[in-house]
């Protein structure tokens, strides 16, 4: 009883780290731009394929494909922002949220079908020589690649945190989140900050996707599920709180995995949506967010 439960908690933490990483990207973009990019899950899927092909065709170790995946998703972010999202910069906040959701839905359909056409509907996984290796601690199995995922997710978050705290660009992003009008008056070019945070969000989705490809599997239709996960975790963790969002991801991961242990896999998604509703009703600022003044 105890070992299987512990195994589920550990598995939940390991997958939850990726939930957190995916949500941090969405939350960063949304916090700055108020663009609700519901194609975030498709960006994640493209990140997964970018790493998958770099590994399959070029034989590069999947963890070493991360830089190229970052660059690829960064470029994709710039392109999508310039083509589609930049038109929404001047709109009021509610119009922005609505219209970018519409853009995002359309975009997710297009990206999903492009991926289906190019890469078929088959599940793919990045399988390396060490994919099957695992540590066993007190009977609980810790797959090496998923542990590495956890470490990389943490490194990404710490790097993002330092970037936002220490660099000029990071400070401009934080200022824009707090008060875009005051940031404008301080001489910050809002269009540039929007672009930067959208691209950062896409890059974080890309890394998350690559890690999903290594630890689990990827498929062209995975996007919607990951967008939902990212949305739930974003609400759970509280907007603009990186570490809170990450912890939110782990909470969702553990809850899902423990629920499917006790109640069966069919309830995995239900419990996530239930948490989403409960948080919205009782703590709309998120578990770790502060009330907006």
């Amino acid at each position: 009883m105890l070992v299987p439960l512990a195994q589920n908690v550990v598995s939940g933490i390991l997958v939850g780290a990726l939930y957190g990483l995916a949500a941090v990207g969405l939350s960063l973009t949304f916090g700055v731009t108020k663009f609700l990019n519901v194609a975030h899950g498709e960006l994640l899927m493209f990140g997964g394929y970018a790493s998958f092909w770099a590994f399959t065709l070029l034989g590069v170790d999947p963890f070493l494909t991360l830089p190229t995946t970052l660059v690829f998703l960064g470029l994709m972010g710039v392109l999508l922002y310039k083509l589609l999202f930049s038109r929404m910069v001047k709109a009021t906040e509610d119009v922005k949220v609505k219209n970018t959701m519409l853009i995002g839905f359309g975009l997710s359909l297009i990206l999903q079908n492009v991926a289906l056409r190019l890469w078929t509907a088959n599940d793919r996984a990045i399988t390396t020589s060490y994919s099957g290796m695992a540590l066993t601690v007190f009977g609980v199995r810790l797959p090496v690649v998923r542990l590495a995922n956890l470490v990389i997710a943490l490194v990404c978050l710490v790097a993002l945190h330092l970037f936002l705290q220490r660099t000029c660009t990071g400070k401009a992003i934080r200022a824009t989140v707090e008060d875009w009008a005051a940031a404008t008056l301080a001489g910050i070019d809002i269009d540039k900050v929007y672009l930067e945070s959208f691209v950062l969000g896409a890059m974080l989705a890309g890394v998350a996707g690559a890690l999903v490809g290594v630890g689990y599997s990827i498929v062209p239709t995975m996007g919607l599920e990951w967008t939902l996960i990212a949305l739930i975790v974003m609400v759970l963790g509280g907007l603009g709180n990186i570490m809170g969002t990450f912890v939110g991801g782990i909470i969702l991961g553990v809850t899902q995995s423990v629920t499917s242990y006790f109640a069966g896999g069919a309830y995995r998604e239900v419990v996530g949506l239930l948490i989403f509703l409960l948080v919205l009703v009782f703590r709309p600022q998120g578990l770790f967010g502060t009330k907006q003044g």
Partner: peptide, 29 residues
Amino acid sequence: VAMGISQVPEGGRVFTGMTVLENLELGAF
């Protein structure tokens, strides 16, 4: 702003989540 016009908005609108020094650094963005 770069041409030399700077506005102090009504109510100040300082960045409350950031330190005094960070606020000033942003002024020199």
